[in-house]
Amino acid sequence: MPERRRWSTEEILDTAAELLRTSDAESFSVRKLAAVLGTDSSSLYRHFRSKTELLREVADRILLAAMDGYRPEGDWKQRITALALRVREAFGQQPQLAAVWGRYASSGTGSRLVMEEVLQALRISGLPDEEIPVRYHRIVVLLFALVASEAGAGAITPKEREQGMELFRVAVLGADPERFPALAHFARDVRPLGADRRAAFEEILAAQLAHIEATIRPL
């Protein structure tokens, strides 16, 4: 009987990422991954102690890709904005993994690089040190939400998108003006959630950063 191939950690993570492109974290399992690799689950547990640890590693690789080649430029708001857009772009290329990141937040090198840059940017903003952890937390929670929302829309098929658009048109343009007067009034101007997501992402992030800036007391 031929000896089974020994897969490297990177090969396992590559295969897991590919498997997650067509499934979600709930249906993903180490057993399924092992079957794709043609091995048994026990061999994978030599690399990862649990499914959660494996998923965290997969998510962290996306953050590592986002930080690859990153160089901080500009003021603190420009740095955080540039970082956020890089993370958004990285998960936009693998939208199924955004939900994995949101649920299984990594503590790996990629995550630490993102954390370090946000904290460094906030340190030069003029905020006192005691306020930085709270502000950092708000920014990261917002980034999680925006990236997950963006990626969720990007993961649907063209057919699902068209069906959603048709349902939106029926729900909005066909709204009863007596029951939904405001909706009927703005029906032709209200846009679906998928429209101008990039602009919305940047505006919401900019509003959060402006809010932080307004709290900074001049020296």
Rank of each mutant, 00 (worst) to 15 (best):
R123H: 05
R138Q: 04
V140H: 11
Q163K: 15
Q120G: 00
E150D: 14
G74K: 04
M165A: 04
G108T: 05
L167S: 08
T157K: 02
Q78D: 01
F168G: 07
G74E: 06
P158I: 09
S125M: 12
R86Q: 06
F186Q: 08
F168W: 15
D176M: 13
R161T: 09
R179W: 08
G74C: 03
V172E: 03
Y136E: 05
A153W: 10
I139S: 03
L83C: 00
T81F: 15
L122Y: 01
L119A: 13
V170R: 14
V114G: 01
A84H: 12
Q94C: 10
H185D: 13
S106A: 15
R135Y: 11
R169Y: 02
V114L: 02
L183E: 01
P181L: 11
L122W: 00
A98P: 07
Q163N: 13
Q94N: 14
R79S: 10
I156E: 00
V147R: 04
M165V: 00
S106K: 12
F91C: 03
S106E: 11
F144C: 06
S106C: 12
E73K: 09
L113Q: 10
A98K: 09
R161D: 01
Y136F: 13
Q78H: 02
A121N: 03
Y104T: 02
I139N: 02
S107V: 04
R112P: 01
E166N: 12
D189E: 15
G152E: 13
G74M: 04
R135M: 14
F91K: 01
